[in-house]
Design a protein around this nucleic acid. Structure first.
Lengths: 117, 117
DNA sequence: TTAGTATATAAGCACGGGCTTATATGTCTA
DNA sequence: TAGACATATAAGCCCGTGCTTATATACTAA
């Protein structure tokens, strides 16, 4: 299988790495490996404001790395990387959900929407 | 084999991804997969100034991702990632030297130091 | 309709990143 | 030693980023 890299591919790889190069976004994506998450859960887990959470998700969404699904007044996010092997490769380097929740001192997550834990 | 992630590991992973998330630095590291390179070669290959090249190399060096070897008036850089599997994993996603030189319209590189091409 | 909740957007601020030009430092050679 | 070459550092500029607070939008339920 031949590689057919061009300058646009490398630029996109670099841009994606830069996008993953933020601890909050990286942990969001690592959590999304396990299941979909509601915005309100992220707001509980991370020590930043709700607009900050929303802005991180918007950047991931505009790059097509996550997709949203509106469920009533809640919005659930899930990974959308079936066609993005380089994102998959990076996410293999990240810890799993229990480790993340433990390191953020957020075990267990309080139920704030209809997602069951 | 148990994972023992902590918050410092994730922060370092994110920081390293951010460092690789620049097209110039990513291509430098991709070139360094093949062999060591002289600073003057990078100056020829990339369309930025010599100080810009030097600053990129300093950042990679201060993170321990590359190491330098002074040879007379020239400085050769090489990879230093034996103990950094996450860097290795990302560099597996990058093109090889001929592809990079072709996409930058820099084939072949003019000899500007004692490294043989 | 009104209030409450969930999420997104707007605006502004502080900081860092990547580049430039100018200059300093180090090395080789005539 | 003087000059040329290779590299690093300094200083400054512009722009992007991550956060905040304030506000807008959307949905739900009384």
């Amino acid at each position: 299988m031949e590689e057919a890299f061009d300058i646009a591919d490398v630029t996109e790889l670099a841009d994606d790495l830069k996008l993953l190069g933020d601890r909050t976004r990286l942990l969001m994506l690592a959590l999304l490996k396990e299941r979909e998450w509601c915005v309100c859960e992220f707001v509980e887990i991370f020590d930043i404001s709700q607009p900050a959470i929303s802005q991180h998700l918007r950047r991931l969404r505009s790059k097509g790395i996550v997709k949203e699904q509106k469920k009533g007044q809640w919005v659930h996010y899930s990974l959308n990387i079936e066609d993005k092997p380089h994102i998959q490769a990076v996410l293999q380097l990240t810890p799993d959900t229990p480790a993340i929740l433990a390191m953020l001192n957020r075990t267990p997550v309080t139920v704030c929407c209809e997602i069951l834990h």
